[in-house]
Nucleic acid binder design. Sequence first.
DNA 1: CCCAGTATGGCAACCGGTTGCCATGAGTTG
DNA 2: CAACTCATGGCAACCGGTTGCCATACTGGG
Lengths: 331, 331
Amino acid sequence: MDHSGGDGGRRAVTIYDVAREAGVATSTASRALSNPGRVSERTRRHVEEVASRLGYRANRLAQALPSGRTRMLGLVVPDVTNPHVFGLLRGAEAQAAAAGYTVVFADSEERPELEAAHVERLSSFVDGFVLSPRGDDAALRALAQVRPVVLFNRSLAPVPGVTFDFDDSSRQIVDHLVALGHSQVAYLRGPVTSWADGRRRAALARHCGVHGVTLTELGPFAPTLGSGPAAADAALAGPATAVVAFNDLLAIGVLQRLEARGVSVPGELSVVGGDDIFGASFCHPPLTTIAAPTEQAGRLLVDMLTGRVPGDELVLHAPLVARGSTGPPRV
Amino acid sequence: MDHSGGDGGRRAVTIYDVAREAGVATSTASRALSNPGRVSERTRRHVEEVASRLGYRANRLAQALPSGRTRMLGLVVPDVTNPHVFGLLRGAEAQAAAAGYTVVFADSEERPELEAAHVERLSSFVDGFVLSPRGDDAALRALAQVRPVVLFNRSLAPVPGVTFDFDDSSRQIVDHLVALGHSQVAYLRGPVTSWADGRRRAALARHCGVHGVTLTELGPFAPTLGSGPAAADAALAGPATAVVAFNDLLAIGVLQRLEARGVSVPGELSVVGGDDIFGASFCHPPLTTIAAPTEQAGRLLVDMLTGRVPGDELVLHAPLVARGSTGPPRV
DNA sequence: CCCAGTATGGCAACCGGTTGCCATGAGTTG
DNA sequence: CAACTCATGGCAACCGGTTGCCATACTGGG
């Protein structure tokens, strides 16, 4: 067995080495380094000097073992490279740093079983989880028993979380399209495992109903650029003059396909996205979408986890951002 | 002190509980669960049954303490939300999973001291690091003594790493611009802490020299969309008919500014990026850039770390992707 | 039927820290 | 000058696992 620091060579310096070299008991060395005030200034300085001379670095594994606390937080998302979660990453990181925590990210690649595996692997190493979950309700509830958990974009009492006001953002979209004169709208569905997709569909249907707008559902589609062509073609085959996509990735994929097919946007078809990702403002034409305050969500989630805000169910307002991809239908 | 699993309530189930409940010694319980073959089939089954009935989950902190190995890898990047590192994240994750490792990501926000802090915090919890480094050489060499380290986009013998062939990609850019008829080129510099920036400048200067092209250096600029306007304005103030940006983020920011100022691209100014990020293909006009094989780099780096490839200095070829943002200069 | 060999299980040490409790000695006060 | 505080430092247990070594029981063979 190799107990070295990892370079396969000499063994790492332990607090015992420091204590021996400094001529004090290990408890004194420990207190000198991590519990100052309990030890005389002279001794403390001496121990610190010896520790740094020997290049001592505490083994955080051993340090965390008695208390079980590591001051690390786990953040598991379905896809780190999806711009939609950028705000979450940044917000969580910033707030965690402020509270003296370190965030580690893991990517579940949209797969519930990988999410479970990551959580399992990390659960001993972190004090709590921020999850943008893909797993089913039962698994999440079970996990919440073992470790503090907060959820992004999923409501699952009694587990605390932050969601966006889908009802209101759907209302804004429908109002916007109605104001432009649309009466035939298609919704391009996201993954069936997405809780948010179900919410958006329901809310859109309700508000379309209120305004007498006909809503068609297409899909489900994978929420990626690559699904854009199929989604665009499906939309063009129907009567819709405007499409609302599950998310911006899908919407941008649709825009690319429409450009390739020579369909003018918004003249022949208006396109609405879902989350105002990086790229939504500079694609062609710039995408009308919903600007979810994901960074704020990240901050709040970490606050809940670190106990600075009571764990609860928060719903954040997400405003519509109208850009060039929506306009009046060409009659 | 609270030794519970984290919910503040009852204490977590330990292997001692399992052993007692199953009526065997702790060593037997341990072996039954993690070293099968050393224990009779009947006993193993019994212990497993008891463990799952009690909801036992091994404390990985304690498990890792004796061996010092966690089968986790740390990946520290300057900015998780910079699309440039997406390939790195994906490639590393995929290859690590294949080798039975879990990857945790951390974000240094382009700050050397935060990078150091993350590494320090994580070093006991991971078996090695993949770094896209911002710290200085001495710090990195010191770190490499403590833990296995491999570097992305930085050459620093004897620490193994993967870099891209800047010389060749600069040659491709210059050849391309010369073929289009340009003779006045500006380089928009990246951060001074970036090793890659220095390499690109030197290589561009050399190849411009070969073709008798005049190269102007502007900046340094932060490698973000937000620096685009300043960079674009600086470029327009000079004689250049083509600009090469440090990276795509900066290049896309430039494109946005040029569009806002009504400057036609590539008619009045050609623009070249640096890393073919997400968005480079659908910005307006689509960006000519260098497609660095970052995913392959991520795979190789993890292979080096897990010892499946000899630790060494690898240089990967990065091809030019010509898109709409470059064309002949308007005479 | 006895003995050797082997499969199984248990004791205890160890990983590297932290901390409760007690002993000691210096400083303070009556 | 003696008694009492209080600051300081040390012993040892503990966190929750793993593992080397030994004891035991059971097996099969002579």
